[in-house]
Write a protein that binds this DNA or RNA. Structure first.
Lengths: 174, 174
DNA sequence: CCCATGGCTGCGAAATCCGCAGGCTGCGAA
DNA sequence: TTCGCAGCCTGCGGATTTCGCAGCCATGGG
């Protein structure tokens, strides 16, 4: 044996259209694309041919799928680091409570370069936002002068990072 | 002109040892390595030659530096996705309060495959942990049966994700 | 002074990426 | 039914990139 096929090519109804969208607006992924993503979660630079062997596709097919996944914004292949080791002294998670529609608030946060991560949540915060800053002054400035003044924002609570212990991207690889 | 040098090669004191460590234990990075990381934050598959042109180094030198950065664990090149689009229905941030030394608690969290992100913080939570699960049952199980029973853990508070709005890795690129 | 170390360059050989033509399948229109 | 279209895959050269290695230079310790 040589290559465990993740999805047998002739078994399924032959419709790997990952272009169709669910009501959510996010593309629907078939098993093969999932397997490709899994490969790239282990190593973002793995050659297409190796991926093809693992998922049962030709090199060219893998290349086309990866390109589409990137274009669609389903995944991105990037270098990730611990910001603290790359010169950013202060990092914090900010919990936010706001009135009315949360979308505009979330969009405003998304537009800020210092904000790296924005998620709308259920619980005692409406929105969680992760912030990466150069130093304390910068952090204070972003929170007080840019976030707390956004229309609708009622209150915020900050959690300054002391130490990053884990950072993984290998869902699917377990 | 062709290639903006990020760091002139002959100007600096000629000591790009990124192997020396700060008291923190994290390697100290020079400007060139930072520039390389920046390039790979934009595109994790960018060819070494292109990076070299951008930062003023040969292809081979870039390759060696990247390899070292990966080996040292300073950065990782991976595909990142929104878990919700890849079949994981439930995701949550969990704020944790614990007694005594936090390290063992953080380590225990780090060891759980469902836990993707662990950070020790200052503020009304001692630790923040992000969890990726298949469904509600799975999430509940992890929080109640695995986290809340850890020795030292006093209380937890969960924030279930409703919608991921932003996810970036381009600090340095701004 | 001499040698060991670390980092960079340059260079072929091997592997990879890339674009393109062609084939197959499912589907909807005529 | 048949035709034509669209989506996806394969195979194949040519261009590019990756990879390993030998050699060079500067620094620093003995």
């Amino acid at each position: 044996m040589h290559s465990e096929r993740v999805a047998s090519r002739s078994a399924e109804p032959r419709d790997p259209r990952d272009s169709r969208e669910s009501k959510n607006g996010t593309p629907q992924l078939d098993a093969v694309s999932l397997a490709i993503i899994e490969q790239l979660q282990e190593d973002g630079r793995r050659p297409y041919a190796a991926i093809g062997k693992a998922v049962g596709l030709s090199e060219a097919a893998v290349r086309q799928r990866v390109q589409k996944l990137l274009d669609q914004g389903v995944m991105q292949i990037v270098a990730v680091t611990d910001p603290l080791t790359v010169g950013f002294r202060r990092q914090a998670m900010v919990g936010i409570n706001a009135d009315g529609d949360l979308e505009p608030v979330a969009d405003a946060l998304t537009a800020m370069p210092e904000v790296e991560y924005v998620v709308m949540t259920a619980g005692s915060f409406d929105i969680l936002a992760e912030i990466v800053c150069e130093d304390d002054d910068h952090l204070l400035d972003v929170i007080n002068k840019r976030i707390r003044v956004l229309p609708g924002v009622r209150s915020t609570e900050s959690f300054v990072y002391l130490k990053l212990k884990k950072q993984t991207y290998m869902w699917g690889t377990r």
